[in-house]
Amino acid sequence: MNQPATTSSPGEPASASYPLRPYLLVFFGLMGLTALTTTVAYVDLGFLNTTVALAIAGVKALLVVLIFMHVPHSGKIVWALASAGLLFLIILFLLTMNDYVTRAMVMGWE
């Protein structure tokens, strides 16, 4: 993790090893997506509103995780830990909702 993104040669300033551009690009990207999500919220897309909002949030999250948190540079173990978090979160949601959405369900023998 955090090997410099590029190595600078002796004459170059250290800042060349830790480029600024990706961070600024992500910053503006996140700002833009925030403006987008707030604006789109006022447009009636029916049930798609939530989907779009979550999709935009997902993209923002990816930008933070991949660029700000350097996951791609951090090795397999960090990837595995990050993925495990997502996986077990989904398990928590899915199996809990599995109860709630089937409460009204009538079983075949009832």
């Binding site: 999500t37 919220a41 897309l45």
Partner: peptide, 24 residues
């Protein structure tokens, strides 16, 4: 930094789910 970015991540999801629900 990792901790702080995580805090940011939580808000990225909280914001639309809490604030943007019924605007349309």
């Amino acid at each position: 930094g990792l901790y702080w970015h995580f805090v940011d991540l939580v808000w990225i999801f909280l914001f639309p789910l809490l604030y943007l629900l019924g605007r349309h």
